[in-house]
Nucleic acid binder design. Structure first.
Lengths: 131, 131
DNA sequence: CTGTTTCCTATTAATAAGGTAGGTAAAGCA
DNA sequence: TGCTTTACCTACCTTATTAATAGGAAACAG
């Protein structure tokens, strides 16, 4: 299940893509348009900044803006940044995960196949495909 | 992310499929083979009984067994029973979910498409496909 | 130097995840 | 009848996550 963090981040990205004039868009405006608590969005956009999706500027005339052209973003990278992983099971999400049953696990091949399906779906989907 | 409930239930089903002799399989044996806490499995198999996947019998010679032939079970129904839903977002998981933005939501079509992808993947996968 | 806006730290309430503990009821067997 | 095996039932517990809220400090423009 994708949490609000991932879903809100996607909506922020879409909002920025639609207001992609080159100048900064204040979070206040985004929060109002999207009807999401500005305070909560602060946490989310901060992660988006440190994750390299967007950039922010303080002070008057400040706000947030995209770092790349909208078509250069995939839904997958946005969701994966916010959710931590898109993997369906812990043993695939964390590459250091230890599991004694790994060699003989009858369910692992299915989880791997599904993981690939999910990954491909979201990484082939561009931000602009949603507009 | 699929929780241990769903993953363990799947492994119990596979264990029962492999020991599908017609007689009941004690949970103790399943727990030992699968190296899962019997106490925790009790909770899980109880839900599987009430959910109509398996049946249980008390007393000596008791245990659990499948209600159908192994090839008649889909991975999807097992996971959906344990997880509650396979939907990626709340607005699709709960059909009574109210959302003002539904008509204009730019992300909803993607979630719907993804939901179908996930649903189809797991419901086309039979229990016997994993053996 | 004032208003705007991001950036930072802390706190919180509710829920779910992943169990553990201890007992009751049912069934077969001697 | 009583013992053993097994499911079934109720309650509790710990930790982490989710989805926020609160209050202020720092940066920047005019």
């Amino acid at each position: 299940m994708i949490s609000t963090k991932g879903r809100y981040a996607l909506r922020v990205m879409l909002d920025l893509a639609k207001n992609n004039t080159g100048s900064y868009v204040p979070l206040k405006d985004i929060a109002e348009r999207q009807a999401i608590s500005k305070k909560y969005l602060e946490i989310i956009v901060k992660e988006m900044v440190t994750g390299g999706l967007i950039t922010g500027a303080s002070g008057k005339g400040g706000g947030y803006k995209l770092l790349r052209k909208p078509e250069k973003y995939t839904v997958g990278e946005i969701l994966e940044l916010m959710e931590g992983t898109l993997s369906p099971v812990a043993c695939l999400a964390d590459k250091d995960y230890r599991c004694d049953r790994r060699k003989s696990c009858e369910t692992l091949p299915m989880w791997k196949e599904f993981d690939t399906l999910v990954h491909d779906y979201f990484y082939e989907k561009k931000l602009t495909d949603l507009l």
